[in-house]
Design a protein around this nucleic acid. Structure first.
Lengths: 182, 182
DNA sequence: GCCAGCATATATCGGCCCGGCATATGCCCG
DNA sequence: CGGGCATATGCCGGGCCGATATATGCTGGC
C-alpha cells in the first residue's frame, strides 16, 4: 500500500493537485490510517503520468503559482482495482509514546505526567476530528464504516488513558537521575 | 523514535545480538507498536559501537555461526535516557485494510468477506499474543500497563469487526466488474 | 537414509519514503 | 510595511524495509 496507490485512490474520487493529495492525506477522512509527504507524492504522480494511469492539465491562477491538476484515466481505474485485489500487507503501528511509557521508572514524574497528558489530548483531538466528519454527500457508506471503526478505537484509547494514566505516573522514579545508572 | 533508539531500549534490559533484537521487535512484548528489520538494525548497531554507546564480544558456537553479543555502556544508558527526554513524535498507523475497506463498493462480496475475515483473525491473534505474555519476572509494571492498553484496543477492534463486518460485505458490488468504470 | 526446509546469524543493496529545504507569490494582520 | 501564512512544485539526504547472499546444523517427511 504505497504512495502510488494512495494517489490513485484519491484521484479515483475526483481531480486533485499534488498539494490537494497531501492535504487530504493529512487532514482528510483517511488521515488517521494513511499519510504521505510531498517528497513521495510528486515523484509518484510523475511516474503515474509516464505510465498513462493519470493525466494532467496546468491551470493558471491569478496571484498563486499555476497548478497541475491530475485526473485518473480508465487505465488508472483498472490498475487501482487490480491493486485492491492483491493480498493486503499487515497494518503497522508506530508509537513513540508507548516506547516512552515502558521506561517510566527511569523518568521524572512531571515529565511522564506531561507526556501522558499530551497524548490524551492528541487522542481526544483525533476522535473529535472523526466525529466532525460530515456523514452526508460525498461520503460513501464504507467511509462511514471506516470512520466509525476509528471512533471506536479512539474511544477506548481515551477511556484507558483517563482511568489508568495515574498508575503510569506513580511508576515514574521519585529520585532524580540515579536509577538510569543501575 | 528510530531503530537506533529501539536498539538502545532493548540493550538497556540486557545483552543481545542483532538477531535477538530483530526477534524481540517482531515477537516480543513491544512488537505491536514498534518494529525493525535487519537492514536497519545491523547498521544501527555498528554506528552505536563506533560512538561508544554499545560494546560487543564475539561468541563462538558449535555448529551455528558465531554471534556478536552487544552490551550497552554507561554512555549508552545516558544517551537513551536523554532521548526519552526529547519531544515525542506522534503515533502513526498504516492500514492497507482500511484503504481496501473504503472501496468495498467496487469489489466482489466474496473478496471483501475473505479480507475482513482475515483481518478479524489477525486482530484476534494479536490480542491472544498479548494475553499470553507472562506478567511476572522480567516484566516491569509499565510493560504490563502498555500491554493492557494494547489489549483494550484489540478488544474493541475485534468487537467492532464482529458486529459490523456484515454491513461492509453488503456494501460490496453484486455486479461483476462494471462499476469500476463509472 | 536423504533432501528440503527451517532456525540461527551477519551483512549488503536497491528502492521507497519522510522531513527539510528551495523557490515563487499574494494575502492578512499587526 | 514587514513577517508569517497559504498555495504550489520539486529536490535531496538520510532512514528504513524487503530481498538476497552466505554459512551451517537440526528436523521432519517420503
Amino acid at each position: 500500500m504505497n504512495v502510488r496507490t494512495l494517489c490513485l485512490s484519491i484521484l479515483y474520487e475526483g481531480e486533485a493537485t499534488g498539494y490537494d493529495i497531501r492535504r487530504l492525506s493529512v487532514e482528510g477522512e483517511c488521515a488517521y490510517f494513511i499519510e504521505a509527504s510531498f517528497g513521495s507524492i510528486y515523484p509518484a504522480l510523475a511516474k503515474l503520468e509516464d505510465e498513462g494511469l493519470v493525466t494532467s492539465r496546468t491551470e493558471q491562477q491569478s496571484g498563486k503559482p499555476s497548478k497541475k491538476v491530475y485526473s485518473i484515466t480508465e487505465a488508472g481505474r483498472t490498475a487501482f482495482a487490480d491493486e485492491l485485489l492483491a493480498p493486503l500487507a499487515p497494518d503497522t503501528l508506530r508509537s513513540p509514546f508507548l516506547l516512552f511509557a515502558r521506561y517510566a521508572r527511569i523518568l521524572p514524574p512531571e515529565l511522564v505526567e506531561e507526556r501522558v497528558n499530551d497524548y490524551l489530548q492528541q487522542t481526544v483531538a483525533a476522535k473529535e476530528k472523526l466525529d466532525g466528519v460530515p456523514t452526508g454527500s460525498g461520503c460513501h457508506a464504507a467511509d462511514k464504516w471506516v470512520i466509525n471503526y476509528g471512533r471506536a478505537i479512539m474511544g477506548v484509547a481515551e477511556q484507558y488513558l483517563r482511568t489508568h494514566m495515574h498508575e503510569l505516573i506513580t511508576m515514574a522514579r521519585a529520585e532524580p537521575k540515579k536509577d538510569a545508572a543501575e
